[in-house]
Design a protein around this nucleic acid. Structure first.
Lengths: 246, 246
DNA sequence: CTACATTTTTGAACGAGTTCAAAAAACGCT
DNA sequence: AGCGTTTTTTGAACTCGTTCAAAAATGTAG
């Protein structure tokens, strides 16, 4: 488990084609057989290329997984937009988005553990805080920005500014719980979402109270610093080779 | 990464000796060369036993790591007790314990990432929520129980009962931050501890306010449920649901 | 002490991720 | 079209975690 090389950018039409073929094959196998069964050799064989060729385009198995992240985020986003149109209260909006997130992830629950496993290593490109996953993370936070922006709730500006990031963190926590959730149909996770969303709504109201201003200021200063540490500005990114649409 | 077998119990004086030798060799190498460099082959070679022999006593590399967990917890506990004697305020006690935790872990920062990596997989015996690590976790929470119990602060009983677990969770979060902390001498982590302890102290006061009772009750009910889900009572040992099938 | 049983130890093998030198194909330029 | 360069592709090899059958050592009666 080294995983250092980046996904090599393709310089040719042929290369582009091969890369896309490998990726789609990998995603398909991941979905059908889970993480362990989806070996690099199996992917290469099914895609009809050599093992080394797969490694030419994806520096490691992890890099292939990152495409999975991207895919599920897109699915979640697509599913969330209609709900954001309908609902207006912050609470209802958050509830919908969170439930839909779990809905989206559900088919992959079996191997989500492995996913988070590699994601927890600071050196892994899958780490949600790493530079490599900055684009996906930014997109993900962007969803919560939408969620907050268009809500009418009266929230102080300082809190409102940090709320998207805080909600993103909260949503990561829920996913962590979901991974460990062995209850039927993930009932516990959905229940947890219902209750925590309720609680968060109340807490936000509380934090918006003028009496809470000093404490809130202090807490938010901390959050800002924390956020800047963990998600360093990615202005020094190299050619993020996205191109993941199919 | 299968890791299913348990560490085989030794039935002989000779076996006991060999097992201890392998373990100490492994811990030494982990400390000196980090996780990646410490291969099972290297451990076996340095210990002067065969590779298969190492696997006879430790079903997987993970099992060796668990010994590391235990070791660092003991070190932390030993370092914490004097501080708990001296300090009386909850705030000072928490501050000391947290700082000492990082002090204890610091020599292993390099490979702590990998540690948490395997720990994030629900199927891994290293997972802090898993049954396998229940003893270490319980001991760890016990430290926070001591921390809370002997503090004079006026805290409602419902909150006081859950506080040890909540602080343990908090301490896990700090460790997660520390793993990602690349600042010199982990300055950011220590700074984060200072600020969050301050904040937590204020929050506990706030939550202890009679006006907060309804919200507090609601939140604590949630915490209790969450705790029971994640850390199931280990009265029923082996026959657990897990069973990673392949 | 002998013979059987159990435990310890070995060494070879397997599967999977990863690396790499070099062959094959595609490209760019005159 | 021809030729040098770059990109793509291959296949073998390496490492490491893990498994396993069998040999060696140890323990236990009779």
């Amino acid at each position: 488990m080294k995983s250092s090389k980046k996904s090599t950018a393709t310089k040719t039409a042929k290369g582009e084609q091969t890369k896309a073929l490998i990726l789609s094959t990998a995603l398909e196998m991941l979905h059908e057989r889970g993480y362990e069964q989806t070996t690099m050799r199996a992917i290469a064989e099914k895609a009809g290329v050599s093992l080394g060729n797969a490694y030419h385009y994806f520096g490691s198995k992890d890099h292939l997984i990152q495409a999975f992240y991207h895919r599920t985020h897109e699915d979640h986003l697509r599913a969330s937009l209609p709900a954001l149109q309908k609902e207006s209260s912050l609470r209802a909006r958050l509830l919908s988005v969170m439930r839909l997130k779990i809905d989206t992830l559900e088919p992959y629950h079996e191997f989500a553990g492995v996913l988070f496993q590699t994601a927890a290593d600071p050196h892994s490109p899958l780490n949600p805080f790493a530079h490599t996953s900055a684009p996906v993370r930014r997109d993900s936070i962007k969803l919560f920005e939408q969620l907050v922006e268009q809500s009418k709730a009266r929230i102080p500006n300082d809190l409102r500014a940090e709320l998207p990031y805080l909600l993103w963190l909260y949503h990561m926590g829920i996913i962590l719980f979901w991974i460990h959730d062995a209850s039927r149909k993930r009932a516990r996770t959905y229940r947890l979402i219902d209750q925590t969303v309720d609680l968060l709504d109340k807490l936000i109201s509380l934090a918006s109270n003028p009496l809470m201003r000093p404490l809130r200021k202090k807490a938010l200063r901390l959050v800002v610093e924390l956020r800047e540490d963990l998600t360093p500005d990615s202005s020094d990114e190299e050619n993020e080779t996205e191109s993941g649409h199919q």
